[in-house]
Write a protein that binds this DNA or RNA. Sequence first.
DNA 1: AAACCCGACAACCGCTGTTGC
DNA 2: AGCAACAGCGGTTGTCGGGTT
Length: 343
Amino acid sequence: MGRPPCCDKMGVKKGPWTPEEDIMLVSYVQEHGPGNWRAVPTNTGLRRCSKSCRLRWTNYLRPGIRRGDFTADEEKMIIQLQDLLGNKWAAIASYLPERTDNDIKNYWNTHLKKKLKKLEDSTNSDEGRACLATEENTLISSYSHSISRGQWERRLQTDIHLAKQALNDALSLDQKPMIIPPPNPSHHEAASTSSQLYASSTENIAKLLKGWMKNSPQMSCSSTTVTTQHSAVQKNIQDAHVTDYSTSSEGTDQSKSNGIDLSQAFDSLFGFETLDSSSNISDFSTKSHNNNMSPEEASTFFNNERKPDLSSLVPFSMFENWLFDDGAHNKLGLTSNFSFDDI
DNA sequence: AAACCCGACAACCGCTGTTGC
DNA sequence: AGCAACAGCGGTTGTCGGGTT
């Protein structure tokens, strides 16, 4: 039996979050960092349960989240990972660092499931076979790509092994890790650091509020007005996110994110051709070593608070990059002929 | 113009697992 | 060991906007 719901108290608000609530939550997290969610409603005055606050942060306000506009590469990844792993949305999301499990789940349920069903139906019909040159057929051909489940599993085992190796290496590094937490950081210093990391959210909310005020000449602080404006505001948040990403990345191609070409990453993970290890991953290393990363880039790289302990030593994204990097085989002198028992 | 339908997605619910006391 | 608090997960529901009748 599960625990009783935490939100059945009187006076706890449910439903869509208002911009004011978002700001209160973001401000709090900026100051105190994510965690200790129980204290959030008390300390912020939010009439929300702690769980609702955590989910709102995790799925919506957390920086580094990209919303909407799934790329073809992301679709491919989701489809193949879903085929391999089933509805393990969190596991799938771990391969798409900018996407939340909730987002992927929704996208699967609303888009991909139907798309695949349609494709299955069409390929079973004569009509469907007649039009195999469409974009959708590209998708299904990737879906039914000829690598076997055994190969997938072996490949994933290799990745797990490499991640383990990388973790061991990182923990035993003689040299300083790339991101070194300040010695005995005071609370204030920690808050200062986190402020940088959460800046994108703050900016986004500032933008949305700006748009909200502009669109609402007779602006009122009543919650009803706020609620009715919320959808427009939400769109502003989304626009702000898109804007931030398009300006912080070198190209406009959304498939390139975090400096990692998802297509390459995908091919590395699921294909069997060798990925050129001199690609974007080494770009990341160079950039971070030279300290010429923008705050936005750094935020995107290092903001995964789901793995706070790892990221405080070595950014978790490095492990993800490592997993995607076939060159790691050579670096470690490893081959994939290890036993699964090694893990 | 109103009613209805439907898709998209944010949010909630119920449960399990983990951690600390 | 037992309990409570919390985090995480996957399924489901509620709400809203847009399209159609």
